[in-house]
C-alpha cells in the first residue's frame, strides 16, 4: 500500500458514499445511468471472485465486500425503490458495444488462460469503459446536478491516483501490470473532458452545463 493508492481507494469510497447520499437525500436517481451502475456490479463481481480463494489483507477483504455490496445496493435503489425517477429513454447507450469487445480483449489479453484470470482481465477492461453510458447521458442532457458531478469527479480522481501509484510501484517494487496500466490510463482519459468542465465551472460555484 502506498500513499497514492490509499488516496485513490478513499476517493473511490467517497464517490460511492456521494452517490448513495444523492439518491437518499434527493429521493431520486435522476441523472444517473442505470447501465453504468449495472456494469459496475458486473465489474466488481467478476474481479473479486478471488475473495473466495485468496486472502490478501483485511483492508483488501473489507473494501472488496464494500464495493460489491454498495454497487448491488445502488442497483436495487435505482431499480426498485426510486424506479419511477429513472428515465430509460435518455439512458440509451448500447452496452453490448462495451461488453462484447471487453470479453474478446479479455480472451486475448490475460495473464493465464483460466476462468478466474480471464474474468479478472474482463473486469479491468469493462471498468475502463463502464462510465461511458453515464458520460453519454450527461452529454445528451447537457447539464447535471452538482452532487452528481461530485460523484463523477471522485470516481475520476480515484482512477487518476492509480497512475502515480503504478509509477511509484515500478520504482520501489519493480512491479508492472500492463493490463491494469493500459486500461487504467484509458479510463482516466475518458474523464478529461468532464474534469475540464468540473474544475473550470463546478469548482467555481457554477452549475455544470455543457456548451451548446
Amino acid at each position: 500500500m502506498n500513499f497514492f493508492r490509499l488516496l485513490g481507494d478513499l476517493s473511490h469510497l467517497a464517490s460511492i458514499l456521494i452517490l448513495l447520499h444523492k439518491i437518499k437525500t434527493t429521493r431520486s436517481c435522476r441523472g444517473l445511468s442505470f447501465k453504468t451502475q449495472a456494469l459496475y456490479v458486473a465489474v466488481f463481481i467478476t474481479r473479486y471472485l478471488d475473495l473466495t480463494y485468496r486472502w490478501v489483507s483485511l483492508y483488501n477483504f473489507v473494501m472488496k465486500l464494500f464495493f460489491i455490496g454498495s454497487s448491488c445496493a445502488t442497483l436495487y435503489l435505482m431499480r426498485y425503490k426510486y424506479c419511477p425517477t429513472h428515465d430509460p429513454s435518455i439512458d440509451t447507450f448500447k452496452i453490448e458495444y462495451l461488453v462484447g469487445p471487453c470479453a474478446i480483449l479479455a480472451l486475448i489479453f490475460n495473464y493465464k488462460f483460466s476462468v478466474s484470470e480471464v474474468l479478472w482481465s474482463f473486469s479491468i477492461f469493462l471498468e475502463s469503459v463502464a462510465i461511458l453510458p453515464q458520460l453519454f447521458m450527461l452529454q445528451r442532457t447537457g447539464e447535471a446536478e452538482t452532487i452528481t458531478t461530485h460523484y463523477l469527479a471522485a470516481l475520476g480522481i480515484y482512477r487518476a491516483f492509480y497512475i502515480p501509484n503504478w509509477i511509484y510501484r515500478y520504482f520501489t517494487e519493480g512491479v508492472v501490470d500492463p493490463i491494469a496500466i493500459v486500461a487504467g490510463i484509458a479510463q482516466t482519459g475518458l474523464y478529461l473532458d468532464f474534469f475540464y468542465v468540473y474544475f473550470t465551472k463546478v469548482m467555481q460555484g457554477e452549475k455544470f452545463e455543457l456548451p451548446a
Partner: peptide, 10 residues
C-alpha cells in the same frame, strides 16, 4: 504470467 499482475490492488 499471473505473477506479474498486482493481486493486492482493488
Amino acid at each position: 504470467t499471473v505473477d506479474d499482475r498486482v493481486k493486492d490492488e482493488l
